[in-house]
Design a protein around this nucleic acid. Structure first.
Length: 457
RNA sequence: UCCCCGAUAGCUCAGUCGGUAGAGCGGCUGACUGUUAAUCAGUAGGUCCGAAGUUCGAGUCUUCGUCGGGGAGCCA
């Protein structure tokens, strides 16, 4: 491995452990910030994305994870052996270059680097992902390398922004982050298939939701959110499913359904606003139609009841939709298409909703639940509800759903000791990202997706 | 669990009626001082997913299997 020839240090004993953030006296600058250093000689460190050579001239497209810059190597501007070394670089070879930042319209990106020094760190073996077309199966087998490509990297940066916006949103509204366990003794809702693990000889499951623990935490801290991975062993094989995905689940004491809906629209519009403010360049890399996203950064979001949603379906090509059933993918698409931003659908038939949802006091057939449906066919982003806070009613629900009562005793305790109205929702991180970035498949929105029969790399 | 589609060079694919295995890109060699997924010339590269069958002859037809892609249901 090549070492920098000189390092500014008066303590040489530490030098081999020291930073590599300078070279030849020049400070490292990330490509994203090069435009602020026009005229300066700086160090750029990264990987070779592509190269074009023209005689005594090499055009190196260098990427460093923050952007791509063209580094121009003229024979004569660098020692001959460095020029020859540049000519032998292969795609994804790692390198450090020192050069002067120049504004140049001929260069992709507006600025380029006139290279005065080139240090080849590692010459890569022939790289499997070429700058040409590849199939999804091939790219998924090489996910660990695919992450280096422009679009996957843009999605990961947006994911980072969304995660930070989520934590900041709740921090500013004084919701405390409370982590729920990954191992659980039983199903939360008892419906979907869970991953079973051996827990010192006992059966345990990987969590499918942190909500019930979130309710307990909200009784302790008032306003909380759970943010972590979630596991579903459903044999779902579609672009809208992962077996491991991230979910954020706020829960708040003294919140009713309307408070939950207020929080939900505030939350999603804030996240979209953060991405529009910070990651516009990445949305452009992804060729996202920003005009279709911008309304979602504005409150309020439309709110309709389940009954009104069914009316939309009946008027809009789904005349045979039976009242009382849950919406399938095409139904959600049809409802979402009616609005320019996500729509909140509330007051659902209780029969198709989870046991923990509170019933409408005026109509026991209605559950005080809400789904947020994205525009453009991305489906359900949020599912939430006001929770059942009455002990007797919740005991009745558990019996109706034939759930193992003993597993829920602790949950029932929350209704025995100072029960209060409360509510919350869950938001699927990857589904939200797929909608924001406009990508078609959830697997592109998580670094290393876990899917049915797919766990490599 | 069910339905549909596919598997040929490193990658993306073509391969006619069953008759000698093809292209583009990538790799390698060389040329070029402004390339924009550079261009030009040359060159190497094949267990046609596996097994069995039909046939004088199978990448091509039949059966079974494996792997992959898409969708339904279920869900976020």
């Amino acid at each position: 491995m090549a070492q920098p020839p000189e390092r500014a240090s008066s303590r040489p004993a530490r030098s081999r452990f020291m930073t590599q953030q300078s070279f030849g006296g020049h400070r490292a600058v990330t490509i994203r910030h090069l435009t602020a250093h026009v005229g300066e000689e700086v160090l750029v460190q990264g990987w070779l994305y592509n190269m074009r050579s023209k005689g005594k001239l090499h055009f190196l497209q260098v990427r460093d994870g923050t952007g791509i810059v063209q580094a121009v190597v003229f024979r004569g501007n660098v020692p001959d052996e460095e020029f020859e070394a540049a000519g032998r670089l292969t795609q994804e070879s790692s390198l450090r270059v020192v050069g002067t930042v120049k504004a140049d319209e001929r260069s992709p990106g507006g600025v380029e680097l006139q290279v005065s020094k080139l240090d080849v760190v590692h010459v890569a073996e022939p790289y499997p992902i070429t700058p040409k077309e590849h199939g999804v199966g091939f790219l998924m087998q090489h996910r660990h390398l695919w992450l280096r490509s422009r679009k996957p990297a843009a999605i990961l940066r947006i994911r980072d922004t969304v995660i930070r916006a989520i934590r900041e949103f709740f921090h500013r509204r004084e919701f405390a982050c409370v982590d729920s366990p990954m191992f659980t003794p039983s199903a939360c809702e008892g419906t979907t298939t869970l991953f079973k693990v051996d827990y010192f000889g006992d059966e345990a499951y990987l969590t499918q939701s942190g909500q019930l623990y979130g309710e307990a935490s909200a009784m302790a801290l008032g306003k909380i959110y759970v943010f972590g991975p979630t596991f579903r062993a459903e044999k779902s094989k579609t672009r809208r499913h992962l077996t491991e995905f991230w979910m954020v689940e706020p829960e708040a004491a003294f919140y009713d359904l309307e408070d939950v809906m207020d929080l939900g629209e505030d939350f999603v519009s804030t996240i979209v606003g953060a991405v529009l403010a910070e990651r516009r360049d990445d949305l452009e890399i992804l060729e996202r139609d920003i005009a279709k996203l911008e309304p979602a950064a504005q409150k309020p979001y439309p709110r309709i009841t389940y009954d009104q949603a069914v009316e939309i379906l009946h008027a809009d090509g789904h005349a045979d939709f039976p009242y009382g059933e849950d919406f399938g993918a095409p139904h959600e698409t049809a409802i979402g298409a009616r609005f320019d931003r996500p729509v909140l659908v509330y007051n659902w038939p209780a029969a198709i909703k989870a046991f923990y949802m509170k019933r409408d006091p005026d109509n026991p057939a209605i559950a005080l639940g809400v789904d947020m449906i994205a525009s453009e066919g991305y489906g359900e982003l949020v599912g939430g509800a006001q929770r059942e806070d009455d002990l007797a009613a919740l005991e009745e629900r558990i019996a109706e759903h034939q759930l193992p009562r003993e597993a829920f005793e602790w949950f029932l305790d929350l209704r025995r000791f100072g029960s209060v109205p409360h509510g919350g929702f869950g938001l699927g991180l990857e589904r939200t990202l797929a909608w924001i970035t406009g990508v078609e498949h959830l697997r592109q929105c998580i670094p290393f997706p876990r899917m049915l029969d797919k766990i490599y790399p």
